[in-house]
Design a protein around this nucleic acid. Structure first.
Lengths: 212, 212
DNA sequence: CCGCATCCGGGGCGATACTG
DNA sequence: CAGTATCGCCCCGGATGCGG
């Protein structure tokens, strides 16, 4: 990207990560860990393949990520954030926080969705209100792949993939899941809009008492 | 800007503020308050005038700023952030924090500089270590226009313009001022690199004890 | 199939000129 | 002062090709 030519911390940051797609690539690596080229391409619907390759090279040159050759049986190159790249997490967190209100209207007609994109809203809205209880796993099915909300020791963390032993499974559209987390819907309202649960729905109260 | 088409809080944010120059316009309005078109143009060296006009229109449509007709004697339109626009401050703060290390190398040959761009590094590095002392004003002369660091009641705030009654005046290149604040230089080292002071230099210890 | 490189059309961007 | 108009270029999006 062309430099702004300003001796300003914000402008210097944008010189590196202000390009189109750049911060979304960092988002993927932050949420999902080291990924292959094809995984990134699949997680970023709409990105041109040449552009993705160019961005990865620029980000590597900038020290934000590094490409490492994975050990067998993967035997391919993985792209992983460096410490410097992982330091962008607060930037993405604040961008996510600012963007949450724009999710309330629901997805646009041709919006894509990946389950792990819920991670930022989840950490924004959920918290472990009962840190002394045993660990709890809540599985979310809002897109193609399930994600698991792990609740333990006072912390809430989202992990891609299904839960091994979920105390609760929530299945609904992303919009309804978000409404439930953000407070726009309670359990009854969410059920009326298509939410299906399995397990003890009252367990939701541990992370979102207002919803139960 | 073309939408990313992703039902994700970060992507939705970038749909609105991911365009080139957009966040720098918000930066100016955050740091300097409502500004006229020409002021913005001057504070954003390198921006094309048509592009600035287009961005202002887009930002107004997005509810991030509004144009208000100023009362006499100004008699012109002022651009001011809305509450929604001001809510971008944490995003810029984190971008600034992440960008500070890139300032250590000093400005590039053709970098522009405006004094109030120091605001984010200032709030990052300085703090009022002696809240019970009377208010203190430190005037910085690092660019064309002076800026004032106001220290009172435990808070540090930067305001454009000279100080009415500065307890201390620091005059140096932006690079040296930053080095002094960030800890790369102490007072002696900064003086060796061109720092000139007026007033009681020991007053700097109130906000940066390590430097004295 | 994976990981790109190449090519091409269109639009965003940069620089300057011009106008009310 | 506050923009609009114009033009050239480069970035971006989409498709295809190609070696490993």
């Amino acid at each position: 990207m062309r430099s702004y030519g300003q001796y300003c911390a914000i402008a210097k940051s944008l010189d590196l990560v202000g390009d189109r797609w750049t911060l979304l690539i960092v988002r993927e690596l932050l949420l999902s860990g080291p990924r292959r080229y094809t995984d990134l391409r699949n997680a970023l619907p709409g990105v041109a393949t040449n552009l993705l390759a160019a961005r990865l090279r620029e980000l590597e040159d900038a020290g934000i990520l590094r490409s490492e050759s994975a050990p067998p049986p993967v035997a391919t190159t993985l792209y992983a954030l460096t410490e410097r790249g992982a330091a962008l997490e607060p930037v993405l967190r604040e961008l996510g926080r600012w963007g949450v209100p724009m999710m309330a209207a629901g997805p646009a007609a041709d919006d894509h969705f990946r389950s792990h994109w819920l991670s930022f809203p989840v950490s924004e809205f959920l918290s472990d209100r009962d840190p002394d209880s045993p660990p709890l796993a809540i599985e979310l099915r809002a897109g193609e792949d399930p994600v698991t909300v792990e609740v333990r020791d006072g912390a809430v963390h989202l992990e891609p993939g299904p839960a091994a032993d979920p105390g609760l499974v929530l299945e609904a559209s992303p919009h309804v899941i978000l409404g439930l987390f953000a407070g726009a819907l309670d359990l009854a309202g969410a059920r009326a809009r298509g939410l299906r649960t399995r397990g003890d729905a009252a367990l939701l109260g541990r992370v979102r008492p207002e919803a139960v």
